[in-house]
Write a protein that binds this DNA or RNA. Structure first.
Length: 587
RNA sequence: CGGGAUGUAGCUCAGCUUGGCUAGAGCGCCUGGUUUGGGACCAGGAAGUCGCAGGUUCGAAUCCUGUCAUCCCGACCA
């Protein structure tokens, strides 16, 4: 961070709040507001005040350093983009309402604009125009820039906003091997970035699109208020987005159990949902077979899922080998089941059936009777319905075996702070970014893309690193590393504080002087709330004994040092703490 | 977009059920004084078209209708 004019509390804008604003619910939002880091303009739009902006810029600087070390070349592309580019990649429709777009008069005509939600189109177009030979590849271009997304529902303070700072990098390659190499380098850079910022992170396997395999990883910060759900196995280290996670189960026996009770039809008037049936029959959802009717490439198919599980449409699509999958209409359901919605079951249904691995394990199951207002009980595999094999068709759940063969999965919430993705040639083909190889053969350029939500690094830190007194910053991204607090307004105290403050400033330490005419309690409370890593207190009493006081935000007790040794001690402690933080950064 | 809640001073909120004089409190802010190592005290003061519009009424922060905004749950989220 560049050296800047001395900053005194009284000359900057740090509007701390004693009370919790009514609109903020989660800790990061409340604390960032109370500590005076941000202020809301409207839903999903926040101003970054001096402290918040400083933290954000420090995180940004770390991101820039590491991406450059990984071979990234910084550019800056316009947020304002022609809608035409999104038409060409089909993403105008894919983004839908998320894309900010409008039409405006210009010259004699009308132009259609969009605000960039991300820059695959713009960067691919740029590369298409200027790269034509394998000799120019690979190249890795990145920028740190404001992105715009018309989120249907911005929420959680600064965690989900319609305008945010993103580092987006795009790599271009002649070969998949080259892509894999850059992917690995960026993956490593991401680990270093999050470690340096002091934010906990967990790389998880994510939906990978057309390339498959290990083509996509999300970097999650485990947090109770995170919007994403991930499964994690402590024993094997397996971690994946819930959408994507394998469950590690195997196909069970499809034979009818010997002591199966005879099948029985029950009258269940107006009781359609799983919940309602359970209440009516006084049973638990794991004994129910949920029969979901889908239209798969326009053909009806029944998907059997245990009552307490969630169907995973991606897995169903893959098991069926279809591209189009949607819930069937009530008409189709009536046709294949002979009953209104809510009473479907596998027994006697007039369409193909596929079942999740857990279905045959339900002994004496309860399911719809394919007849209005009726359910069947004691339904058993083999005797009452036949399956050739079973599939993994549902979201993983806590307690499932890890796909790595040992250990069990647990479910945790996470804040997505980064995403690396092997794109392949989707954008290069649609935007005609081709290169010629050494034999003059033309190929679409192979791409990777890599995003980091810089605001989310700060928000994730605020969300996960705090205590009842306020925020707790690591040195690396703290708005200021040190706050110097003179407790009285007597000249001796003020002079001593000014002296330390000036020396720290000259030594390159990021320091703020709390020169307000406030009582000690107010200054201490604010310092804790904001979470400056180190607090230097100069008070009349201590000064009489020739002592000043150092207190780390994370420490319980302060350290008292003679004035003459203060600078040396502070510098030493800062160096130690920096080394400590650096030790957690992977090489 | 469906469901729920809330809009009164910079912040937190009371007042609204049962309409009635000049709309209140605490914190913050300004002035003066006393204080001074963990969100001080006393005295005085500034600050609000009660979200907005319409309606009912002699009279509306309060009742009715509409509208806007914000928050929460859900749907959505390259």
């Amino acid at each position: 961070m560049p050296q800047e004019a001395f900053v005194r509390w009284s000359k900057t804008l740090i509007p701390t709040m004693k009370e919790v604003p009514a609109d903020a619910e989660i800790p990061s939002h409340q604390l960032m507001l109370r500590a005076g880091l941000i202020r809301q303009l409207m839903a999903g739009s926040y101003s970054y005040l001096p402290l918040g902006w400083r933290a954000l810029r420090k995180a940004e600087a770390i991101v820039r350093e590491e991406i450059e070390a990984a071979g990234g070349i910084e550019i800056h592309m316009p947020a304002l983009q022609p809608i035409d580019l999104f038409e060409r990649t089909g993403r105008r429709e894919a983004f839908g309402n998320v894309l900010f777009q409008w039409e405006q008069r210009r010259g004699g005509g009308r132009v259609q604009f969009a605000l960039g939600p991300t820059h695959e189109e713009v960067v691919t177009d740029l590369v298409a125009k200027h790269i034509s030979s394998y000799r120019q590849l690979p190249i890795n271009l990145f920028q740190i820039q404001t992105k715009f997304r018309n989120e249907e529902r911005p929420r959680f303070g600064v965690l989900r906003t319609s305008e945010f700072l993103m580092k987006d990098a795009y790599s271009f390659h002649a070969t998949v091997e080259s892509l894999n190499e850059t992917y690995k380098a960026m993956y490593r850079a991401y680990c270093r970035i999050f470690a340096r910022c002091g934010v906990e992170y967990l790389p998880v396997e994510a939906e990978s699109g057309p390339i498959g395999g290990d083509a996509s990883h999300e970097f999650m910060c485990p947090a109770n208020n995170g919007e994403d759900r991930i499964v994690h196995c402590r024993k094997t280290g397996y971690a994946a987005n819930l959408e994507r996670a394998d469950t590690g189960r195997v196909q069970p026996s499809l034979e009818t159990s010997a002591d199966a009770k005879p099948i029985t039809k029950l009258h269940t008037p107006n009781v359609g949902s799983i919940e309602a049936v359970c209440k009516f029959l006084k049973c638990k959802p794991p004994r129910m077979i949920k029969t979901l009717i889908y239209s798969a490439d326009d053909k009806a198919v029944a998907v059997l899922i245990r009552g307490d599980h969630e169907a995973n449409e991606g897995k169903i699509r893959r098991a069926l080998g279809v591209t189009k999958l949607e819930m069937a209409t009530p008409e189709v359901i009536l046709q294949v089941t002979g009953a209104p919605v809510g009473f479907a079951g596998p027994v006697g249904i007039k369409c193909p059936i596929i079942a999740d691995h857990d279905i045959p394990l339900i002994f004496n199951a309860i399911t719809g009777a394919n007849e209005g207002d009726h359910h069947l009980t004691n339904v058993n595999v083999g005797r009452d319905y036949v399956l050739e094999k079973t599939f993994d068709l549902r979201n993983a759940a806590a307690g499932d075996p890890s796909p790595k063969g040992e250990g069990t999965l647990e479910l945790v919430h996470g804040i997505e702070i980064g995403h690396v993705f092997k794109l392949g040639t989707k954008y290069s083909v649609s935007l005609e970014a081709y290169f010629s190889d050494e034999k003059e053969q033309r190929h679409p350029i192979i791409m990777g893309c890599y995003g980091i939500g810089v605001n989310r690094i700060i928000a994730a830190l605020a969300e996960t690193k705090n205590d009842e007194n306020g925020l707790i910053w690591p040195l690396s991204v703290a708005p200021y590393e040190v706050v110097v607090i003179p407790l009285q307004e007597e000249a001796t105290v003020v002079d001593a504080a000014e002296s330390i403050y000036t020396q720290l400033q000259e030594a390159g330490v990021d320091v703020l002087l709390d020169d307000r005419a406030q009582r000690a309690g107010v200054k201490f409370k604010d310092a804790d709330l904001i979470g400056f890593p180190l607090r230097v207190v100069i008070g009349g009493k201590g000064l009489q004994e020739g002592l000043i006081e150092l207190k780390w935000r994370t420490a319980i007790e302060p350290i008292k040092v003679p004035v003459a040794e203060a600078m040396a001690t502070i510098m030493k402690q800062l160096a130690d703490r920096r080394a400590e933080e650096a030790a957690s950064v992977p090489s």
